[in-house]
Simulated assay, not measured.
Amino acid sequence: MNIDVERSPTNSEEQHLAATPKARALGLAVRKERNDRSTSLRDLAGRIGRHSGEISRWENGERPLTPERTAQILSALGVSGDRFDEIMSLAYEAKNPPWVATTLPERERQLSALIDFEQLASRIIAVSPLLVPGLLQVPSYVRAIMTSGVSVPLNEVSARVALRLGRQEVVTRTDPVNLVVYLGEAVLHQTVGDSTVMGEQLRHLVSMQQRPNVALRLIPYRSGWNPALDGAFTLIESGSAAPIVQMENRRSTLLVHEDADIEVYRQAADQLDKLSFAPEKSTRTIAEMAQRWETTR
């Protein structure tokens, strides 16, 4: 008689599984269900016969949650129906890299994991050839993007603007992340909103460049081919979690974490570092363009 028994992962398997963005998203989803039901870690531990510290590590993505463990926790919390199926789907896919999110629920789960990675980050490298990256956008710039061609319902715009601005706290908090931005020179000339919005946005970049944890580098037009022309990406590094790279287009987002992939994007950032303007020249160029926008109002 064949009996299915849950196999305990080895230490190396645990480290690999826990490192995935999907594993982090799974832990966040389980924690949300527990918090929504006002259930403490100790309470849940008693229901499923596990230690509260172990559950905490599952929720934080430090140790992998297998589908069997996930089902046990969800059942103990009384989660059922579509929500149960949604989280279990994530549990079965948690070890499968990379993570391509195309549906709205998937993208929301992925965004939750991304925000968690940002909160834990020690350094974020943002390569942005065409737009100011989200962590440096001003409210008027964000709103202009979300109301111009992006299919965001009008009743959701304010909430989404607030969410994006809230993520910027990682740059301005007491123990801020080190943010390195490689910005395409085209960003300074591309109208987003109007001249008032552009002037405000570029002045903000100049101001943020003064922070010791922010390094802003312009990729000049005359640099020839460079990795930024392949598209925007964000590399997030942390002392407590494996690094990830995030990429986004109009209908989907992608998170990768495999060592080989991370190395490719690190090399791309190194190449951009060699050909970009120095911080001082970058700041001067941005300030000059801010003034031009301000005089065209």
Rank of each mutant, 00 (worst) to 15 (best):
N249E: 03
D273K: 01
R266E: 08
V256K: 12
N249K: 03
Y221W: 13
E237K: 10
K281L: 12
R222P: 00
I236K: 08
D261F: 11
P243Q: 14
L254F: 09
L275R: 00
A242T: 10
N226T: 09
D259T: 15
F277T: 03
L255S: 05
I262M: 12
L275Y: 00
D273N: 04
S223K: 07
V256I: 15
A241Y: 00
S223R: 07
A269Y: 03
V264K: 11
I244G: 05
A241F: 00
K274A: 06
L254A: 06
E237Y: 09
T283I: 09
I262H: 10
L216P: 03
E258K: 15
S282W: 05
A278H: 13
R222V: 05
A260T: 15
N249I: 07
A228P: 04
F277L: 14
L254I: 13
A269C: 12
G224F: 03
Y265E: 07
T253E: 09
P279Y: 06
A241W: 00
P243E: 12
L229Q: 13
R251K: 03
K274L: 01
A278C: 11
A215L: 06
V256F: 11
R217A: 01
G224I: 04
K274D: 01
L235N: 02
Q246F: 12
G224V: 02
A268V: 03
A215P: 01
D273E: 04
E237R: 10
E248K: 11
E248H: 13
A215V: 09
R217Q: 03
L229T: 02
T234N: 03
R251V: 11
A260Q: 15
I236D: 04
D273S: 05
E237Q: 14
A228N: 06
R251Y: 02
F233H: 05
L255M: 08
R266H: 09
I219D: 02
K281V: 11
V245W: 08
A242P: 07
Q267H: 01
A241P: 05
A269R: 04
A269F: 06
A242N: 06
D261E: 13
T253G: 12
A242S: 08
I262G: 11
A278K: 10
A242H: 03
A242G: 04
M247A: 08
D230V: 05
R250Q: 08
E263T: 14
V256Q: 13
L218E: 01
D259M: 13
L255H: 11
Y265D: 08
A268Y: 00
L275I: 11
L218F: 02
E258V: 15
D230I: 05
Q271T: 10
P227G: 10
A241L: 04
T283M: 07
